[in-house]
Write a protein that binds this DNA or RNA. Structure first.
Length: 496
RNA sequence: GCCGCGUUCGUCUAGUGGUUAGGACGCCGCCCUUUCACGGCGGUAGCACGGGUUCGAAUCCCGUACGCGGUACCA
């Protein structure tokens, strides 16, 4: 039990759950479940300025919608809590003090302006990216340069301070990343990272390391944007005397136009970027999961479709690719259509009943939806397109497609007229699709035209569109009375 | 600029020294269907470049180019 896998998804509650974050969560989840381990949700709310009310709820709801089951979290509880960093402040301060006492961290009293002045000065003298590091800290106001009595005094008078990591001058930090192999950094390129901010909150770097250790996290699976700061984390583990977890830095999800798939870019490309957009847009969660799983990973064979359980079974970090993956919305739609078609009709009806059209359109009942589903299911990409394409089953058409009308040609009206007469004369009131087909066929023959010449006008008359679900079953579903009424309406409309 | 990571069809990828470089999305065509889709079949298109190593490189090494990330008291 002590060596079982424990992973965490640790988002900041700064907004809706981004699709990239969702994939990170998914990979963590798949890895944990594959190894019979634990999936933890930790809320990294250390940035008070960017905190967004309701973000935590959105994150949890989004994960649940995707079928990602959370084992431990602020609301699911767990032995290693609390799971919100804002509730663990003392723990970080303790760790920071431990580092200060070990002389691997120090107090710094510089104001933002003073740091800015230092940067400007160094920039002017040719340093393109000046940082607070082993060289510059010697000329700044901190517990390394100030006499200890003065440091004491400043601390006692409540002067604002931060605690910085004392990054060594010239050392090599190396670690093995499951996805990238051995990664090496020289400490001279690192700055003296702020560990505790002046508002008493820890920065990501400290909180992350402390929590991962305290929560027994065995594998850190996160986005590649963290790779550059990983050496700081390794230093922290070393100084705190802790065993670092195994690292795995995931390739980034890219925009079709290049670069990280940011909210802004995604909007420009017409890609929904928040998980919430997919929930509200009535997409299939399994499609999103399957698609995301394959964005940067593959089981190594030619398979494409897998349920969450199968993904859990197949997943391995070794097979995650190293390069960024462009988000291909059309492929996602392909997955969506696939999963939509594979849903049980009954389940789909239940979801349809929750859509607003259920109340705005007349005659929407579970029974009717169930009858309509086979006709429309294969033709839609998203569930909510059902009503878009099937409106005519509930309402008489308001307009007729111009192109269809043009294609139907001059004779459309006379065909509709003939059609009406033969249908009115039909002995049955409740025709089957087959009987409607015979009706169309016989009428066409009597008029001396092909089937196409009667089908298109009929379709236009009953639905307003030049294309759509199978005609004869649609006619049967509509009923003779409605069909006749619409034929008449079309005739009036077209000849006026 | 510096540091790090990366580079197989347009896109997602398989591939770990010997393959006609495979699959999927997309796109195109055909079949099915007297609509549109679904489905089936087929086609299109790729190893960034230059040096090595080797009998033999998409696969190993070096370099170049390009891309991406980081370079905050944001995560």
């Amino acid at each position: 039990m002590s060596n079982s896998v424990r992973v965490r998804f640790a988002p900041s509650p700064t907004g809706f759950l981004h699709i990239g974050g969702l994939r990170t969560a998914l990979y963590n989840y798949l890895y944990a479940k594959h190894h019979g381990g634990t999936f933890i949700l930790r809320i990294e709310d250390t940035d008070q300025a960017r905190f967004v009310e309701g973000a935590e709820e959105d994150i949890i709801r989004s994960l649940e919608w995707c079928g990602i089951e959370i084992d431990e979290s602020p609301i699911h509880g767990g032995e290693a809590g609390p799971y919100r960093q804002s509730e663990r402040k003392q723990r970080y301060m303790d760790a920071a003090m431990q580092l200060v006492e070990a002389d691997v961290a120090y107090y710094a009293f510089d104001t933002a302006e003073e740091i800015e002045t230092m940067r400007e000065r160094l920039k002017a003298s040719g340093n393109p990216s000046p940082s607070y590091d082993s060289i510059t800290r010697q000329s700044m106001k901190n517990s390394l340069t100030l006499p200890s009595e003065e440091v004491q005094k400043r601390l006692e008078t409540g002067e604002p301070y931060v605690i910085r990591l004392k990054v060594p001058r010239r050392e090599s930090v190396q670690f093995t990343d499951i996805i990238r192999g051995v990664v090496t950094f020289e400490t001279k390129g690192l700055d003296d990272q702020v560990l505790m901010k002046s508002d008493g909150m820890p920065t990501y770097h400290l909180a992350n390391v402390v929590d991962d250790h305290d929560m027994g996290v065995t594998h850190v699976i996160r986005g590649e944007e963290w790779l550059s700061s990983a050496p700081k984390h390794m230093l922290l583990y070393q100084y705190l005397g802790w065993e670092p977890p195994t690292m795995a830095h995931l390739p980034l999800i890219m925009s079709p136009s290049g670069g990280k798939l940011s909210k802004r870019k995604a909007e420009q490309e017409g890609i929904p970027v928040n998980t919430r957009d997919y929930i509200d847009g009535h997409y299939e969660p399994q499609a999103l999961v399957n698609f995301l799983a394959y964005l940067g990973w593959s089981p190594g064979d030619d398979s494409e479709i897998h349920s969450m359980d199968e993904l859990v079974d197949l997943f391995s970090l070794e097979k995650v690719s190293k390069a960024g993956a462009v988000f291909n919305f059309k492929k996602l739609m392909w997955y969506n259509e696939h999963y939509l078609r594979n849903q049980a009709d009954q389940a789909l009806v239940q979801r349809l009943l929750e859509l607003p059209e259920t109340n705005s359109l007349p005659g929407v009942t579970a029974e009717r939806l169930l009858a309509l589903l086979p006709l429309l299911k294969e033709r839609i990409t998203r569930l909510d397109e059902f009503f878009e394409m099937g409106t005519f089953f509930f309402e008489d058409p308001q307009a007729y497609d111009e192109k269809g009308l043009a294609k139907a040609g001059e004779i459309a009206s006379s065909m509709v007229e003939a059609l009406m007469q033969t249908l009115q004369a039909h002995p049955k009131d409740d025709l089957t699709p087959e009987e409607y087909k015979t009706w169309l066929h016989d009428t066409a023959e009597a008029q001396g035209v092909g089937m196409g010449k009667v089908m298109l006008p009929t379709r236009l008359a009953i639905s307003g569109a030049g294309f759509g679900p199978d005609l004869t079953p649609s006619l049967a579903l509509l009923g003779k009375e409605t069909v006749l009424r619409r034929l008449q309406a079309a005739l009036n409309h077209w000849s006026s």
